[in-house]
Structure formats: C-alpha cells, structure tokens
C-alpha cells in the first residue's frame, strides 16, 4: 500500500521528489469506507516537505452503497465556510491506483472522535461547549446557501413538501433490496410514515445525513475542528438531521442525553436560536420514526453484504446481531407501540 500511495501521490504534489510514505495505519470504525492515515515526506526545490493525510477507500461492499464523488462534493462545498471540514486534496473514482475508488484529505491533528472518550471526566468542562458548538454548526449547515456550489451540482433539490417522500422512497427501496428476512416492525413503520406525512420543510437545506457524536472531531478546549462522514449528505428537510442526532442509538451514556452530551430541549433551543428555524414537534416525531427506518436500512445492508460474502469485515455481523433487533425496539418506542 505504501508504494502504491507514493506512486500515486508523487505526480499530484508540485515539484515533488523522493516521496516516502510512513506511519500508514488503518483507523478502526469507518464501516462504510476503509479509513487510513499516513504521513508523506518529500523533497522540493525549497527543501523537505511533510504532510499527514487521511485516505478513505471503498471496500467491495459495505453498510452503505454511496457515491464517494458526492461525499467529496459536500466536503468541498463547505471548505472555508462556518462549517469546519477537513481540506479535500484528491479524488479518484477508478480502481487503477489502489484497487478501488478513494479520496484523500488532510489530517487534522490533535483531535478526538470517539463517542466514549467524550464521556470521560477529563471532558467534563469541554463537553457542554462541544454540545453547544455541535448544534450551532448544525444550524450553519442548514442555513448555508448551497446554490451554485458543488453540492447543487451533484444533488437534486426536492420541493419542500416532497423532502420526506424522496428520502422515504430511497430508504424503503434500500430495505426492499437488502432485508434477509421479513421485517414486520419495519413494514409497520413504513406504513405509518406514509399515512402520517410531516409538514413541508421550512427550507430545503444541505442535510448531513449522519450528524451525531462520532462524526465530529472535537478537542479538549471545547472546540469542534471538523464535521466528517458526509457520505449520506443530500438536500432536504433540515429537521431530518436534528431527529437523527437525537436517536436512542447514540445515547451512549444511557442517561437520556442526546449523543450522551446534551438534553434534547437544550439542543433544540441552541439550534432554533442560531438557525432561525423552528423544530416543529410533529416534524421531529415523523423524522424520528424515519430515522429508525433509515438506520434499519443501513444495518440490513451490512448484514446482507456479509451474508453474501461481498464484505468479510466483522463489523457487519456485529451490527446485525447488536443493532437490528435494538432498532426494532427503538422503532416500537417511536411509534408508541412498545407496551
């Protein structure tokens, strides 16, 4: 892998000679794409240069079948905006360099991404600041003017009253394609969603699609250095992201705090004040039920890719055994059918 990376990068870097790749290390997680970090050192006419990078590479199959070009476009859209993202450097959609498509971005040093570490006592002071920033940044994503950007080039914009249907059709199709066994709770949830549509979106925004603790790179000073994992980003109803970030799946401390770090009412207050958008309870409820269905679509996709031998990463059966039934339990709660 080091030699393949060196061969790829040398012509990409200006005036580059004697490029060496070191510290290549696969990062745990990243169930939908392999994530690697590495250091590049090279010579130029002005002397020795070095830079640390992150490589995101497509596996043969994954929890998600998403387009890395779209993810790259959303990262690029927010470069230099109020939404912190890593600097994108190169995108390759072919398999000729590393065996599958990939993109490379600059590594952000001195950050943490763990959903567990943020709950440790050493983050007690920083945690409320990180939580506040998390919902201020979400407001910045949703109030960002996406017209004439890379995101607008790559993603279709639904009408405000069609955001829900577009996403529901997409995830119902994913479930149809990937369920290994009939899913009675999921099918009941899908019927409920179609019978009880939410109010139209207040505005059509960029929706991150996987906004939660785990996809923010935070620091002990309470800052958030970047929002990552834009592979499910699209244009749609901003309340979708609020509901997704509130899912019981992410209540890591099991204490009712969203993402283990903030009460739902506090998050809504910060978000509404910053974004100037209201979080309608009916819309939030609809998108909460939808979130259970979407999550199940992701878990079922991973289970099928393992069952069919297209992906042998152990995260796939771990997710299948630990989350599919848990998601049914969460869905029953969201529907008020848990007792």
């Amino acid at each position: 892998m080091e030699s393949l990376l060196a061969r790829y990068l040398e012509p990409c870097l200006a005036d580059c000679r004697d490029l060496k790749i070191s510290h290549l290390l696969r990062i745990p997680g990243g169930a939908s794409r392999e994530t690697w970090m590495f250091k590049a050192v090279w010579q130029t006419a002005t002397g020795r240069q070095s830079q640390e990078f992150i490589l995101r590479k497509d596996p043969p199959a994954s929890l998600l079948e998403t387009d890395r070009e779209a993810e790259y476009a959303f990262y690029s859209t927010f470069a230099g905006s109020d939404v912190p993202v890593p600097a994108m450097r190169w995108l390759e959609t072919g398999a000729e360099h590393l065996g599958s498509p990939f993109f490379i971005m600059e590594r952000i040093p001195d950050i943490e991404a763990s959903t567990r570490v943020i709950l440790e006592p050493r983050y007690d002071e920083a945690r409320p600041k990180i939580a506040r920033r998390m919902y201020e940044i979400l407001a910045a994503i949703h109030t960002f003017d996406w017209r004439d950007t890379e995101a607008a080039r790559i993603a279709a914009a639904p009408a405000p009253d069609d955001c829900w249907r577009t996403e529901l059709d997409r995830w119902e199709a994913t479930i149809d394609e990937n369920e290994l066994n009939p899913q009675p709770a999921v099918r009941a949830g899908l019927r409920w969603l179609r019978r009880n549509p939410p109010p139209p979106a207040q505005r059509v925004s960029v929706v991150h699609g996987d906004y939660r603790v785990g996809n923010i790179l935070y620091h002990t000073d309470g800052g958030i250095r970047a929002v990552v994992d834009w592979e499910m980003a699209h244009l749609g109803d901003p309340i979708e992201d609020v509901a997704w970030s509130f899912m019981a799946d992410w209540e890591w401390a099991r204490d009712g705090l969203k993402g283990g770090i903030i009460a739902g009412a506090d998050a809504i207050a910060i978000y509404e004040k910053t974004a100037g958008l209201a979080v309608d309870p009916a819309a939030l409820h609809w998108w909460s039920v939808f979130s259970n269905i979407k999550a199940q679509g992701i878990w079922l996709t991973g289970a099928k890719s393992f069952q069919e031998g297209r992906n042998q990463e152990l995260i796939m059966p771990v997710v299948a055994y630990t989350l599919i039934n848990k998601e049914d339990e969460n869905l029953l709660k969201s529907l008020g059918r848990d007792k």
Binding site: P184, A185, A188, Y321, T322, N325, K326, D328, E329, L332, R337, D338, K339
Partner: peptide, 19 residues
Amino acid sequence: RIWEEIRESTRRRHLEALM
C-alpha cells in the same frame, strides 16, 4: 395481538448482556 407478537419477537431476540 399482532402488535403484541411484534413486541414479543423483539424480546425473543434481545441480547441482554450486550445492550
């Protein structure tokens, strides 16, 4: 009865020690 069976199906699959 159907909803109760769906609830029971999640109890049958529940992995107590993990989650």
